[in-house]
């Protein structure tokens, strides 16, 4: 091929590449999801897709599901729920079952009033927990898990700033369980800013299969995104980049957290640990108790 023709093709190729630009994706973004968002961003890059990410609107789980199934959000990073799994089965949502929080979400520690810090000192089994009243946000899947285990659970609307402390003082609630790692690193200091009377229970950790996955819109325009994420996460898991990025943002709970705390396993009536495919299962946190 003549040199001028080659030159022209090169120039044209550069123009095409420049004109293609980055794909704009609407992605969930919340303060406690920094590591999840970083992992998704890296996976897309590694998967070969240049994207510009804009935040999806702040919403609860039901709205998140509606947004992503309608294609208004391209990617979110939420725990697996029966609703989401059902949508996946029906082709209305796509799931990449990589445990973004390494299964730590299934380790639940109870927030309670400082004045009643040792309320759970005698609790050893799930049956023992039935004497207490738990609070959870409306629509959370945890509600069904606790209720399936026979633990009374009430749904409240406002929790994100620790408002449940007032309901505890009113005697409406006793406990408000959240993920162990996110509570230690984010929620507890955040809640105590407004409600310093809150603390975490030092006696019990509840554990059930509970994973934060990556979810992708079922719309055709997200096909390329889904493929890129699959490729990217596979590569990141294989080359260890997944764990390296994870550790930049999160760290496993120190062994001391488990010392003196009884770990009570309760089943998740909707899925088990096998929801995480074998290729990602080694990412799950091992505390040695299971």
């Amino acid at each position: 091929m003549a040199l001028p023709i080659r030159f022209c093709l090169l120039v044209c190729g550069l123009f095409v590449a420049a004109g293609a630009g980055a794909m704009t994706l609407t992605v969930q973004n919340e303060p406690h999801l920094a590591q999840a968002r970083a992992l998704v961003q890296e996976a897309l890059r590694v998967g070969g897709l240049a994207v510009d990410m804009v935040d999806s609107p702040k919403a609860n789980e039901r709205r998140n599901v509606a947004l992503i199934s309608e294609g208004l959000t391209h990617i979110d990073m939420m725990p697996a729920t029966p609703t989401r799994l059902e949508l996946v089965r029906n082709g209305k949502l796509r799931m990449i079952p990589i445990p973004l929080d390494r299964g730590l979400l299934g380790y639940r520690v109870n927030l309670l009033l400082e004045s009643r810090r040792d309320m759970l000192a005698g609790v050893r089994t799930a049956e023992d927990l039935r004497a207490f009243s738990l609070g959870q946000n409306v629509g959370w899947m945890d509600v069904e898990i606790y209720r399936a285990a026979g633990i009374p659970t009430k749904e409240i609307k406002d929790w994100a700033d620790g408002e449940f402390a007032l309901q505890m003082e009113a005697g409406f609630l006793d406990l408000f369980p959240l993920g162990l790692e996110e509570t230690l690193t984010h929620f507890l200091p955040h809640f105590r800013g407004k409600y310093p009377q809150l603390t975490i229970d030092p006696h019990v950790i509840v554990r059930y299969p509970w994973f934060r996955f990556v979810w992708v819109s079922p719309k055709p325009e997200a096909d390329e995104v889904f493929d890129a994420l699959q490729r990217g996460f596979d590569k990141m898991v294989a080359n260890g980049r997944f764990l390296r990025i994870w550790r930049q943002y999160r760290k496993p709970p120190p062994r001391g957290v488990f010392a003196g705390r009884v770990v009570i396993d309760i089943p998740n009536p909707f899925y088990g640990y096998d929801l995480v495919p074998p290729k990602y299962r080694h990412l799950l946190f091992e505390d040695g108790a299971r």
Binding site: A59, N60, R62, R63, A66, V138, G139, K157
Partner: peptide, 11 residues
């Protein structure tokens, strides 16, 4: 306007 929040929350 009153319905915006509950509908957004799917409540």
């Amino acid at each position: 306007h009153a319905l915006v929040k509950p509908l957004w929350d799917c409540d």
